[in-house]
Nucleic acid binder design. Structure first.
Lengths: 346, 346
DNA sequence: CGCCTTGTTGCATACGATTGCAACAGACGA
DNA sequence: TCGTCTGTTGCAATCGTATGCAACAAGGCG
């Protein structure tokens, strides 16, 4: 039968319990000096009135909002929803909550978004799949807000970053494809404006170079499905089409496979091998059964949270760079010595 | 060369501009009475110092945080990331921001989550794919916070809800499959604990009943891929296996198709037709090419935002129920009179 | 029994803003 | 010239909570 949405404040609780407002505040502040009797009285009164501290008012005083800003793009790539899910749970477990902002690919939009985040006094920011230009970086810097880059590197060295070992991942793919007997290996790369895309491509090149080989071609796929599919067609239109394609992430790899199989009638891996990067859940579905490099999402998220919280709560300002190992996951989209038909005896 | 993360307040701006602090406040409050000269002076000073109003402090006074709580589950189902993307953009355009919370399937967790949301003084809450028990509902009610249910109905009639016409969608599928010559039609349903799942199943039943038919079987798939795949196997193990399966959403439908094609070697749609619900982007990919009912995500999100904002800003408390039309999208996973081989002449 | 220590509590102020109210200035008509 | 009205501005109180400081009580010790 409550009619008015009446806010119950610490003062109301104090009056009911017959104590001061500061006492109420202390009861709800872990580590503050309160006697058992006091705590019981106050909690009883609070319970009765349905009181809960106003987080925002608290934030104004303490300067900590217990909110973390998340700037993310590419939600169409299953990797990020999965990451968000873990991130949210991990932060919630530590008493933090996520304010989400979507970024486009243009950094102008990102700058606005960061400004709005700062307006909300977030305690820290996670940039997922978003490049950080130096002016945005310095904006966060001067606001004194810890920043962690998730799945992206940066231009300078200002901030902490958590990625998998993209360089090594690329090399592993190169070695694997060579070992599988492939000789004309192309790469539909992740956006070359992103460190992740560049590192994977670079690692791939080095892996081939170590065997005295080089890529048949490298085409930027811009993390876009259609773009990747077009790239696949361009590759197959060549007089010397590839016998294997390494794609910069799974999301694009699905587009490449679809183009190869349904638009060109090719078989994967019999005609062309395809390897991806990420190991999103979809990659394990039999419709794709994609051989890929696994990014350890959970570990990456846990590391991100650890670094961020340490910076917030201990004021640590070390710009750590974590590179978690990214192993190859063997599935059916690429011939290997073990599972595939040996290309030398058809 | 800024060393300290020094917060610049309205007071600092006031001093620099030689005006009162309230003047600064008014300059940043749309609609407040300020002269042109004053506004210019203050904006100049603010610019120089890099001042921006503290949103949290403002929220404490005005009682509006301009944050919307989003409670969501099933992020593995592409439908929700897509919806979140639109929701975030639509709200951002109106000056609101999203605080995300993940819900599990248990309502106990949801209750906690709602409590935390209320602590943050959010101006409204969107529940996406989350059922609302009556105690949680009344909690929001007594806090005076507008609530909109997205893609779910509710037990009572307390809150606004936005869904597509699930009932009609189910009927359309039934009629379509009958028209395609199918006679043994089964349903792997969305979780029967959710209104959405129930409505689609009920509509489907009615559609069959109107032609004097009834479903071969209805099995709850709990919105779970593996569960749905198991259901598909159980159906096909029957002495009279279905010639068509209507699946409660696309995400499960992919699992069903994978089970049929890759684990049982059946052809879709030649051996079994499959129809989904949602029309997520993946449904259009040729690997699945899924015939499905399209939920108009953008329109649903826009409606959600409209209703929510109107409730917040105009205090409207009408518990509207919007049901947007959900048309059938013809693709290749189900035989129809037009595209499929006629089952009567093989 | 008196003194000092330790642990609790209330008072008062602060955090960064918004906003009602009164004071004031200038414009205008009479 | 005076009174009035309109449009700006500053003062001061307020939002809901945290926290330094002084006051106080209880307890241990000599």
């Amino acid at each position: 039968m409550t009619d008015q949405p009446v806010r119950v404040t610490a003062m109301d609780v104090a009056r009911l319990a017959g104590v001061s407002q500061s006492a109420v505040s202390r009861v709800f502040t872990p580590g503050a000096p309160v006697s058992r009797r006091m705590a019981e009285k106050v909690r009883a009164a609070a319970e009765q009135l349905g009181y809960r501290p106003n987080v925002l008012a608290r934030a104004v005083i303490t300067g900590r909002s217990r909110m973390i800003g998340l700037v993310v793009a590419h939600l169409e790539n299953q990797f990020y929803p999965v990451a968000i899910e873990h991130l949210s749970r991990a932060l919630q477990a530590r008493g933090y909550h996520i304010l989400v902002f979507l970024a486009g690919t243009d950094s102008g939009r990102t700058a606005e978004v960061v400004q709005e985040l700062l307006d909300y006094q977030v305690d820290g920011i996670v940039f997922a799949s978003v490049a950080l230009t130096s002016d945005i970086a310095s904006r966060c810097e001067s606001a004194g807000i810890p920043v962690v880059l998730f799945n992206r590197g940066q231009e300078g060295e200002a901030h902490a970053e958590v990625t998998s070992d993209n360089l090594e991942g690329g090399r592993i793919v190169a070695r694997f494809l060579l070992a599988g007997g492939h000789r004309r290996i192309a790469h539909v790369a992740g956006w070359q404006g992103s460190s992740t895309g560049r590192d994977r491509a670079e690692g791939f090149r080095r892996g081939l170079a170590e065997a005295g080989q080089e890529p048949l071609a490298v085409i930027d796929g811009f993390y876009d499905r259609d773009e990747a599919a077009r790239a696949a067609h361009r590759l197959m239109d060549r007089p010397d089409p590839p016998d294997a394609i390494f794609v910069g992430n799974d999301y694009m790899a699905f587009g490449v496979m679809d183009a190869l199989r349904f638009e060109r009638g090719l078989r994967v891996p019999e005609d062309v091998s395809v390897v991806g990067f990420d190991d999103v859940p979809l990659a394990a579905w039999p419709a794709y059964d994609l051989t890929t490099i696994r990014q350890p999402v959970e570990a990456m998220v846990d590391a991100t949270v650890d670094v961020l919280i340490r910076q917030i709560e201990e004021g640590a300002r070390e710009a750590v760079r974590l590179r978690l190992p990214a192993p190859l996951v063997l599935r059916g989209s690429a011939r290997s010595r073990r599972n595939g038909p040996d290309p030398t005896c058809p």
